[in-house]
């Protein structure tokens, strides 16, 4: 197995005529956390949404370029987006558990969709995923309450557990803590660090401290272009590009 799990070649994305992502080339190494930072409207959300082919679900969306998952292009004509998304999971900005569905059902919905019917297996998956998402202790006595009855932070960890239940090698996170209070956000950050052993995480964040704390690599985007990419320690202490320096020191953005 090569060290690079995901490789992006000249990725461009549009909303109708608006070119939101303008040719990105990046590589992601296995078992790393990769942050994407940049001012609002820099295309970072659109970019990450191209990595699991969810951008194309928006009306007027267009994409060009390649995204190689273990060397295979997810945009190849014979690649099935549903299959792609089974390998590349996503946690969204706003916690979005399915309403009118219990905590348990929320966690195992992925495996259920893929045909797992065995109750014991599902219980095992739910237990493991909730453990990994550090939610088990808080919900073990109320697995059959509605998922939406939890607090915002718990809901977000439930959504993470739901993604972990499908066991994707790559997990995308689109500003996963921006709708949470600082304590809940810190919990999700801790989780990212733990997930690194088994997964590759790509996270879009508005919070530069968060990127500096958790990410091994950081990419800085402005107006759909990649300005700088490198080890987080370099980016945040010794940026090579003036724009990056201005942004991380708060003079721009």
């Amino acid at each position: 197995m090569s060290d690079v799990v995901l490789k992006v070649n000249d990725l461009k994305a549009w909303f109708d005529d608006f070119n939101a992502v303008k040719g990105i080339d990046l590589e992601y190494k296995r078992n790393t956390i990769n942050a994407i930072i940049g001012p609002s409207g820099c295309g970072k959300s659109t970019y990450i949404r191209c990595l699991n082919r969810i951008h194309e679900e928006v009306a007027g969306a267009k994409i060009s370029g390649e995204v190689l998952l273990e060397g295979k292009n997810i945009y190849a004509p014979d690649a099935d987006p549903v299959e792609v998304r089974k390998h590349i999971g996503m946690v969204f900005q706003k916690p979005n558990p399915f309403p009118a569905m219990s905590i348990f059902d929320n966690v195992v919905i992925g495996p259920r969709l893929w045909g797992e019917r065995n109750k014991k297996n599902l219980e095992e998956i739910a237990y493991k995923s909730l453990q990994k998402a550090a939610l088990w202790d808080e919900v073990k006595d109320k697995l059959h309450q509605e998922g939406t009855s939890l607090s915002g932070g718990q809901q977000q960890r439930l959504c993470l557990a739901r993604t972990l239940a499908t066991n994707p090698p790559i997990i995308l996170m689109d500003e996963p803590t921006s709708a949470l209070d600082p304590i809940a956000a810190a919990k999700v950050e801790d989780l990212m660090m733990e997930l690194k052993d088994e997964y590759t995480v790509i996270v879009v964040t508005h919070n530069m401290q968060q990127a500096a704390r958790v990410a091994d690599y950081t990419s800085f985007f402005v107006l759909g272009e990649l300005i700088e990419h490198g080890l987080s320690s370099d980016i945040f202490t010794n940026p090579k590009n003036q724009k990056t320096e201005d942004y991380i020191t708060g003079r721009f953005g």
Binding site: F92, G110, W114, T166
Partner: peptide
């Protein structure tokens, strides 16, 4: 809300 629809798609639905 469309959020849950995207969540389902992202889970491979």
């Amino acid at each position: 809300p469309s959020l849950q629809k995207e969540a389902a798609l992202a889970l491979g639905a």
